[in-house]
């Protein structure tokens, strides 16, 4: 099944929650929708599911217009941000719900329903919980039941709204690997919302980055990380050092001093220089474009993270860089820095 969203506009009063959003999801794809809180991720999913209607635009599922149909006719599995399990039903009945409300003509008999629910509970590895009520489950268990419930109707597409949002880091990690392998097993076209960039990069084939109701970039995790299309994406995916620079005559200046890097075709004027923390080459004092004093060093795992106060900034600009452990840094040491890889975006982006 494919999903296509074209030029969707959704307003709440005067506020545009979605501003001309277009998106294609291929058959069997697992797409991550990534963006900060309030960027319109849930709103987009709700429109695809038929729980909300846009002011303008089109949604097609497998080439068929979806906006003309209600949510109950779209066969879309929706896993809600806050689970939304039926509190007065047991786990078993929650999962069976979608099967029990089918029109009589196609409804399975009780035995078949039981068998199917059992299969689904096995799939999410929670068959031993079938007689419990949602309130008696842990967050991660509720999440998996919500997923089993959505899968019960054999949805054409699966929408997961921050499925692991409320869980701790360790459980999240387990569940995301589990989701990845589940997807490999059942191959249903899925959109997966998160505001955790690591999660998006790890789970999805492709990533859509949203901000303020607009799509900033669509690409594979590698593309989005290595070639961010906008300043927002660079800042949002992976942590970046951002320095205000000025571009003129192909030269890049920081506080009036030229840096030893090429403008790479960046437009003249006030700009922002983006460098990943680990893309700063460290050298001896006097050996690079930038110079600074190490203020504090913390080491964990294979890296050491140093706070560096840039010279010529009257101590105002402090950046954090990641250096490999083999280049031992000391607090107070004066070092030079050279961006190894960098991007320049216009300042107003």
């Amino acid at each position: 099944m494919t999903i296509e969203v074209r030029n969707i506009v959704k307003k709440f009063g005067d506020f545009a929650a979605l501003d001309n959003v277009s998106l294609k999801v291929g058959d069997g794809e697992l797409l991550a929708l990534l963006g900060p809180s309030g960027s319109g991720k849930t709103t987009l999913l709700r429109i695809i599911a038929g729980l909300d209607w846009p002011e303008a635009g089109e949604v097609t599922i497998d080439g068929e217009d979806a906006l003309g149909r209600g949510a109950s006719e779209r066969h879309v599995g929706f896993v809600f941000q806050h689970y939304a399990l039926f509190r007065h039903m047991t786990v078993f009945e929650n999962v069976a719900f979608g099967l029990r409300v089918q029109p009589r003509a196609i409804r399975k008999d009780e035995k078949a329903i039981r068998a199917r629910v059992k299969d689904l509970l096995d799939l999410v590895q929670l068959d031993w919980l079938s007689d419990r009520y949602p309130s008696q489950l842990s967050g991660g268990q509720r999440q998996r039941i919500a997923l089993a419930r959505a899968l019960a109707i054999e949805p054409r597409i699966l929408l997961l709204d921050e499925p692991f949002g409320a869980l701790d880091a360790k459980v999240r990690k387990e569940l995301r690997q589990w989701l990845r392998s589940l997807h490999q097993e059942i191959h249903v076209t899925s959109i997966f919302v998160t505001h955790d960039q690591e999660e998006a990069l790890e789970v999805a084939n492709r990533v859509v980055v949203m901000d303020k109701g607009r799509i900033e970039q669509i690409g594979t995790p590698g593309e989005v990380y290595d070639n961010p299309a906008t300043a927002f994406v660079h800042g949002f995916i992976g942590e970046s050092i951002v320095l205000p620079v000025d571009v003129s005559d192909g030269a890049v200046r920081l506080g009036g001093r030229p840096l030893n890097i090429a403008a790479n075709g960046a437009a003249p004027g006030a700009s922002k220089l983006f460098v990943r923390r680990h893309d700063m080459q460290i050298g001896p004092a006097g050996g690079g474009s930038l110079e600074g004093a190490v203020r504090r060093v913390r080491s964990f795992g294979p890296i050491q993270r140093a706070e560096v106060t840039l010279a010529d900034s009257e101590g105002k600009t402090v950046i954090e860089i990641d250096a490999p452990r083999d280049r031992e840094l000391q607090a107070g040491e004066i070092i030079s820095l050279e961006p190894r890889r960098y991007r320049i975006f216009a300042a107003h982006d």
């Binding site: 599911a49 038929g50 729980l51 209600g70 949510a71 109950s72 006719e73 779209r74 066969h75 879309v76 599995g77 929706f78 809600f80 806050h82 939304a84 399990l85 039926f86 509190r87 719900f97 979608g98 409300v101 089918q102 419930r149 959505a150 019960a152 109707i153």
Partner: peptide, 15 residues
Amino acid sequence: QEEEAAISLGASGLQ
């Protein structure tokens, strides 16, 4: 929320 979940699972308004 629960009503929305029910509808997305294919339930009619009365159901």
